[in-house]
Design a protein around this nucleic acid. Structure first.
Lengths: 254, 254
DNA sequence: CTGGGCATGACTGCATGCAAACAGTGACCG
DNA sequence: CGGTCACTGTTTGCATGCAGTCATGCCCAG
C-alpha cells in the first residue's frame, strides 16, 4: 500500500482522505515532526486543509502503516524507529524478498519475464561506474524497480502485503539506499557488490535454484544495512534524508 | 493486530469503533456474508447498532486486515480467499515463523524462556493421545499458545506485524487447525507428527541451530495445509468452520 | 511551603445533516 | 426493436456540532 499510494502525488489524489494521508506521510518523513510528537487533530486540520473526518481516517491508515502509534487514551504519536528496529526490519525484508526469489525460482518463470529483470540489471550496470551524484540517484530508482519486479514475479499478494509492513520503516526498504558524497568510493564498492548479487540472483532464478536465490536475496538485503552503517559515519548527510527525524541511532551501532 | 484484538470480547470493547470491528469480523467469519458481498453502511449501521462514523473506521481497519477489499468507486466488499491464497499465506506463515525460530535460536535464549515452550509442549503431549473431540479443541488452544510463545521469544515487533497480515486469512493461521470427526484417526496422526516437530524445534533452538529451527518451522506450517486437505475430503465439516464462506476451493486441490 | 482537590481547558470519539457521485430504470428517438 | 439519454433513488464521502474524558494548572488548606 505504501508503494502504490506513494506513486500518486498529493495533487492527483481523488479523495480528501487520500490527500491527507499522502500529505501527512510526507510531512512526517520530511522531518516536520519528530518521534513522540503528538498528532493533534485540530492543528493538522488547519495545516492540511481537510476536515477532521478524513484526517482521522488518514491517521488510522498511517497507524496501520506503522508510522504512528495509538495512545491508550486516544490520539496518535509519531513512532520512533530505533537502530534495532531498522536492523530487524531490514533482515525481515531480506527474508521476504528471499522468499519471493525462491517462489519465482521454484515455480519456473518464462524467459520473457526474466528478461525484464535482466533489462533493469543492464541499466544498473551502466550507472554504477559513473561516479557522479545523478548516477547514484538513478541507481536508487533502478534498484527499486529491480526489487519491485522481483516481488511482482512472485505473484503472491500476501508476500507484497507483508513487505509493505517493513518498507514503511525508514532505511529498511530497498529504495531507501542512502547516499553520501563523503563516502562515494565506499558506497560505489557496495553498488558493485549489489549489482553482482543481482546478477547471481537472476542466474539462480533462471536455473531454478530456489535455495540459492533465497540466500542471495537475504545477503543482498544485509548489504543495505552495511551501506547505512558507512553513511552513518558522517552524520551531516543524514539530516537531509527522509525519515531521519523518526530514528534514534545508538552510536555507530546499527 | 488481529490476534490482540480478538482476545477482547464484543462486550468489553471500550469504543464503538472497536465494538463494530470485532462484531463485524465475527459476522464475516461466521459466514453471515459471503465473498463478494457488498458491505453497505446503512444496513450495517442498523445491524450493529453503531453510527456510521465508527462503522467506517471499522471498515477501514478490516480492509487493512485483509478481510475486505475497497472498491474503486468507494465502498467495500468481502474478500474472497482462493485455495491458492490459503496455500500461499500458509507457506508465508511458515517462512515467518521459521524466521522467528531462527532469531530465537541464533540469539540464544535463556533456558527459563525455553521452559515456557517446553511446558506448553508437555501439555500438548497429554492431549494428542486422547481421541475425543474436547481434547482436539484443547490441542488447538495449546498449539496456538506454542506458536504465540515462539513469536514472542523472537522479540521482533515487525515480524509480529508481518505475521498479522497472514493470520487473518482463513485456515492459514496456526490456531485454525480444522478438525474433522470423520477423519479423526488421520488427523491424530498429524497431531503426533506436529508434536514431534515441536520437540525438534525446541531442540534446535536449545542447540542454537538456526537453520534447522527455521526449516522445521517451515515444514511444520506445511503440515497444517496437509491437514486441511484431509478435512476437505469431507465437505460437511467445512460448513461449520469460521471463514468458510470466504473461500473457494477448487476440487480437492489446495 | 507543599500536597490535594477542584475547575477549566482542550482534545477525542460519536452522531447526523448535506452534497456529490454512481447505478438502475424508464422513456424517447433513431 | 434497440440504443441512448435523462431522471431518480441510493450510497458514499465530508463537514460540523456535541458530549465525555483526560490533563493541566491554580487555589486553598494543612
Amino acid at each position: 500500500m505504501a508503494a502504490s499510494a506513494s506513486t500518486l502525488t498529493t495533487d492527483t489524489a481523488t479523495s480528501q482522505t487520500m490527500r491527507a494521508q499522502l500529505r501527512l506521510r510526507e510531512l512526517i518523513l520530511s522531518g516536520e515532526f519528530s518521534h513522540g510528537d503528538r498528532m493533534s487533530e485540530l492543528p493538522l486540520v488547519e495545516r492540511l486543509g481537510v476536515s477532521r473526518t478524513p484526517l482521522r481516517l488518514a491517521l488510522v491508515k498511517l497507524e496501520h502503516e506503522g508510522l504512528l502509534l495509538e495512545l491508550p487514551g486516544g490520539g496518535y504519536v509519531v513512532r520512533e524507529f530505533t537502530s534495532a528496529d531498522i536492523a530487524q526490519a531490514n533482515e525481515l525484508r531480506g527474508v521476504l524478498e528471499g522468499t519471493a526469489a525462491r517462489f519465482v525460482a521454484e515455480r519456473g518463470t518464462p524467459r520473457r519475464a526474466l528478461r525484464a529483470l535482466q533489462r533493469v540489471s543492464d541499466e544498473i550496470a551502466e550507472v554504477i561506474y559513473l561516479a557522479d551524484y545523478a548516477s547514484f540517484e538513478r541507481y536508487v530508482g533502478l534498484n527499486g524497480r529491480f526489487h519491485a519486479e522481483l516481488v511482482r514475479l512472485a505473484e503472491s499478494p500476501f508476500l507484497e502485503r507483508a513487505l509493505d509492513t517493513v518498507t514503511c520503516v525508514p532505511f529498511a526498504s530497498a529504495s531507501s539506499f542512502v547516499l553520501s558524497e563523503a563516502e562515494l568510493p565506499a558506497s560505489r564498492e557496495i553498488l558493485v557488490i549489489a549489482h553482482n548479487q543481482h546478477l547471481a540472483l537472476i542466474d539462480a532464478i533462471a536455473g531454478r535454484e530456489g535455495a540459492r536465490a533465497e540466500n542471495i536475496a537475504r545477503e543482498h538485503a544485509r548489504l543495505a544495512l552495511q551501506n547505512l552503517q558507512i553513511v552513518l559515519r558522517h552524520r551531516g548527510v543524514m539530516q537531509r534524508v527522509p525519515g531521519h527525524s523518526l530514528t534514534t541511532f545508538d552510536q555507530d551501532d546499527c
